[in-house]
Amino acid sequence: MVPTDLRYTRTHEWVRLGGDAATVGITGHAQDTLGDITFVELPKVGAPLTKGREAGVIESVKAASDLISPISGVVASVNAALESAPEAINKDPYGAGWLYTVKAADASEADGLMDAAAYEKFLESESE
């Protein structure tokens, strides 16, 4: 079950809207596929992000993949705790394992993302 209050990308990031800035993380499925996460390269606070473009890199023992920005805007804060404890992403991908927050340039961009039901369907289709 994926949280119903979030929006999802086909590259397995989630975004939580609301408040001043949107919060971004990777999904439970993504952390599961990557395995033990050993390192995250997060964007710098103040850096401009473009929807669909690279925002950072996430590394596990056997893989490294790009973090794709689900939404355009300026980075407001990053989860500094991940620097010393990246395993938080494995343990709690939708909570303590959040990656960064972004001041969205245009919150309506998120409308194009999947809701929980659509993402679950997408996961099913991917596993086939």
């Binding site: 050993t38 390192f39 590394e59 596990s60 023992v61 056997k62 893989a63 490294a64």
Partner: peptide, 10 residues
């Protein structure tokens, strides 16, 4: 270690 940086993975 840190093999994810390397050509055979990345």
């Amino acid at each position: 270690s840190l093999q994810a940086r390397e050509q055979h993975i990345r």
